[in-house]
């Protein structure tokens, strides 16, 4: 029983980080019909920004991490929108999807070229201590990762529902034409969405990399899992992406332990197929209308 509980907590911890990346998928889709297939690389890159700032430039870690988040907001938010999305979106969704795939490859190869193809150690923010709950040994980093990831998503929900800017962003997502008539600066709102995605990706990166190690290819796994999580939960709902991420984190742990370690990578895909067949809009998604 303690093993089961431990697996659930560990799955929730990893799943909450997947959820951060999955939320990014839904945000960009809602704001600009962008399916960002470079999302995995968006989560891979900030860890290398932290390493570049701390190891190469000598910044202390407490400064390197917030600086990396700011850089991620600028590069993965502002620059991504200006240089990739705006020129491509006018040609339709498919060219934009291809452009994001190309961007993902570019980011991956750039990190490999300028940093290293080798995995790099990445410091954990938290002490490697454990607490015992119901006989299960739970690590502090697992608890902290879950709290921070969930905190970020709750803060985002509060921002979207409880502030004027957040409601303007929702209005932009639901009906940009009407939002513009009502005086909402929709370009600015869309830009904010991209910046939030950059910040979420950076937080996910800082939380997951101590477990994964910093490696140029990390985005391949993360991007796929986050995409599956977003579809399973509901591509047009933040809470759907959240549920999808947590679900995949838990299913991965339980299936690897109790079903088959060999087929663990296949199970999220099987889940995806089942969900698409039974409920195409996802577990919590809606088949009509859109909200941020």
């Amino acid at each position: 029983m303690s093993e089961f509980f431990q697996l659930i907590v560990s799955g929730l911890s990893t799943g909450s980080i997947y959820a951060l990346a999955a939320v990014g998928f839904t945000l960009l889709w809602q704001a600009s019909q962008t399916i960002n297939f470079a999302q995995g690389e968006f989560v891979m890159l900030p860890a290398f920004l932290v390493l570049a700032l701390s190891v190469k430039l000598g910044f202390p870690l407490w400064l390197a991490m917030p600086l990396a988040i700011i850089l991620a907001v600028l590069i993965l938010g502002v620059l991504f929108k200006r240089l990739v999305v705006e020129p491509m979106i006018k040609h339709g969704t498919l060219p934009l999807v291809i452009a994001t795939i190309a961007l993902g490859v570019l980011l991956k190869e750039m990190v490999k070229e300028f940093y290293s193809p080798l995995g790099q150690p990445f410091p954990s923010l938290f002490p490697q201590d454990v607490v015992t709950i119901f006989g299960a040994v739970i690590s502090i980093p697992d608890i902290a990762n879950f709290v921070i990831a969930m905190g970020a998503i709750v803060a985002l929900q509060l921002f979207l529902g409880g502030t004027r800017t957040g409601r303007s962003m929702q209005a932009t997502a639901q009906n940009p034409d009407v939002a513009q008539i009502l005086g909402v600066d929709i370009k600015r709102m869309v830009l904010y969405t991209f910046m939030i995605n950059g910040a979420l990706a950076a937080i996910a990166s800082i939380l997951i990399t101590p477990i994964y190690l910093a490696k140029f290819s990390n985005g391949e796994t993360l991007g796929l899992i986050a995409f599956i999580a977003a579809i399973v939960g509901g591509f047009n709902q933040i809470r759907g992406a959240l549920v999808g991420g947590l679900l995949i984190g838990i299913i991965d742990n339980l299936s690897a332990t109790y079903v088959s370690a060999e087929y663990r990578q296949a199970l999220p895909l099987i889940l995806l197929i089942v969900i698409i067949l039974i409920r195409p809009q996802g577990l919590l998604g809606t088949s009509e209308g859109r909200t941020v």
Partner: peptide
């Protein structure tokens, strides 16, 4: 990349 279940086993 994730060895949580392996270590638990």
């Amino acid at each position: 990349v994730d060895f949580a279940s392996d270590v638990a086993k």
